[in-house]
Amino acid sequence: MNGSASRSAPLRLLTPLLTGFAALALWELAVRWLAIPPYILPGPVQVLQTLWSDRAILAPALGVTLWTTLEALALAVVGGVLLALLFSRSRLLSAALYPFAVVLQVTPVIAIAPLLLVWLEPGSAVLVCAFLVAFFPVLSNTAAGLQAIDPGLDELFRLYGASRWQRLVRLEAPTAAPHFLAGLRIAGGLALIGAIVAEIAAGAAGQGSGLAWRIVEAGYRLNIPRMFAALLLISVSGVLIHAGLSLLSRLLPGRGASP
């Protein structure tokens, strides 16, 4: 199993890279040969040029969006884990609140955003939107992890008279950790999406803020290369967030409980 994994690792990295490069080359060639104007479709080279020339506008916007995403993710982790712990301690609480967490999750954030924008100033509304979408996967995965405790280990801890604290630290936390991290990976991507969606919903109200606002603004001005440049930054951010959080799971000792 190890052998095939190490053999396929370069393949798994190389194949999408080559595919992507080929697609970009084709795109660039098509734009040049067919003389497509940049306000319809800019080539990848021009997108990169725009990325550099507009850096004074795009870099702060990237900072705002990333900061919102990380803040929302941090809030989602704290809120999700605490609520999951409460749920694991009280069936009543779980039964009372979990359905509402689901309702909140299945309601599209784009539909909630306008309401939040009425109540809150745009920055906070964007943060709350990103939090709302990131919160649920942390909650549900952590709650599932806390329920995945090996019944034998549970009995063992009782047999040895483990305290609540010992149980939490030595049994519940390590059992739930891989589940929690799986939830965190999903939440990371969703937090970014939530932030972007809310920024777009905020529209002109979010003036001068995140990347999504820059996309909307560039769209009004038919500055398609800048739209692409901002889009590229969002994609790269998403990939980096996912990769960073995936790396965290690898740091788990042993094989974890690998859900």
Binding site: G152, L153, E155, R170, P253, G254, A257
Partner: peptide, 11 residues
């Protein structure tokens, strides 16, 4: 127990 029921996260 019937299974070793070791904690997979420790040596």
């Amino acid at each position: 127990f019937q299974d070793p029921t070791l904690t997979p996260w420790s040596r």
